[in-house]
Nucleic acid binder design. Sequence first.
DNA 1: GTGGTCTAGACCACT
DNA 2: GTGGTCTAGACCACG
Lengths: 132, 132, 132, 132
Amino acid sequence: MLTRVSPDSTVPIYEQILAQVVFAVAAGDLAAGDAVPSVRELALRLLVNANTVSRAYQELERLGVVEARRGVGMFVTDGGPKVCRERRKVLVRDRVRETVREAAAAGLALDELQHLVNDEWPRRNGHAKSAR
Amino acid sequence: MLTRVSPDSTVPIYEQILAQVVFAVAAGDLAAGDAVPSVRELALRLLVNANTVSRAYQELERLGVVEARRGVGMFVTDGGPKVCRERRKVLVRDRVRETVREAAAAGLALDELQHLVNDEWPRRNGHAKSAR
Amino acid sequence: MLTRVSPDSTVPIYEQILAQVVFAVAAGDLAAGDAVPSVRELALRLLVNANTVSRAYQELERLGVVEARRGVGMFVTDGGPKVCRERRKVLVRDRVRETVREAAAAGLALDELQHLVNDEWPRRNGHAKSAR
Amino acid sequence: MLTRVSPDSTVPIYEQILAQVVFAVAAGDLAAGDAVPSVRELALRLLVNANTVSRAYQELERLGVVEARRGVGMFVTDGGPKVCRERRKVLVRDRVRETVREAAAAGLALDELQHLVNDEWPRRNGHAKSAR
DNA sequence: GTGGTCTAGACCACT
DNA sequence: GTGGTCTAGACCACG
């Protein structure tokens, strides 16, 4: 959890961090009231610049997922879990929607797309195998 | 075919054009020897900058899908259909792979993902709106 | 308009820029569809770093006041003027509210506060900035 | 008096404490020779970190408003009331000045600002009905 | 220790 | 030319 980032992805690093925190909170790995890793600590862990982490956290604060306590750290808000579960749904659904549209444009049939998803599922992660 | 582009998507416009031509050729809507729309015409049709279309065409030329005949226009090469069918496969597979990874990271199970794909399939002709 | 910023104010520079654009749009100095100054140009004009301007613009985009057109620039949205008029109202009212509260806490009567406002009004265009 | 603090305000907590003490002394609620609440007691009362109170007191000492008697506590100096009345004037005037400048920048006329002040006056929180 | 802001300068993608 | 992202390192305010 929160240990890896893909610097070469087209997805900005701060968005990757953002999504990972959202998923962690949605899954309950981070509960309301819990502290999120400090900016500097997470930057070290992910081998990215502290500003990059900071930007992700600011976005999370804007979303109402975390709140800063001055001089102390950042904490998951009471409403955070709810927001994250909703946001998770939207993130995944939008991604799936775009993929479905492109597959259809490419002339694939639904069952072909389903087969492709099945084929790719075992590749879903180099490491952490989240089965849930 | 080749009539719409999503300027607000995170996917670059020239890549959208590129993919649409690839899909059209792969599907046989554009056969070997057929002329592709002129840069100007397509730019007008899609309401984008001519340079953007031009860049997509350059890429298509680099891929060996089309070739320019000076003073005449650009035409689908003999090898174009084959190249496009292969490329189509790669484009869709990469997209699916990315989606599968994100769904897994979000904690979805395979069957939940499959259901989501089924749910979104009927929407496949709608408009794109992408998150960022 | 958009020509000065107070680097020594307690108010962050990017918020000052943000407020100035909001005021300019609310006043109609920037209309829907107008381009806002480019990030680099405004940075030069205000003698601040381009990233600082960029941050202000990102916030404006989030507020729905401007939208970026890739490779072209940033433009006031159709809804921008409405948003800005509302936001202007809130900004000024909040500031006044805080001031009234502090004046009351300091033991001032309403008419003393009003006199103070009258006295300070002629200074409104001065360079002088205040620390808090 | 000295019973409330707004942890979410942009105004630093120690400055809020500072201002409240200054206002209390200026108003005569705390006279020369009176003891100010101990750091610990005030920290408990305001639910803030003791260091934060300490910092406010340091500032008050630097201003010559209070002085520490070792092992006993902190007391309002003879010159304290005079200093506080002056400082109160400066604090309020600076705040008003900033507000006037912002209102003018927002395009308000003097009479509109005056009306706004009148409207907000009834909302002032002169005295605490602090429930806690 | 914490987060917040700013600078300087780099590289990228898009038009 | 445009905006977007990232790094490195600085300084500040707060607790």
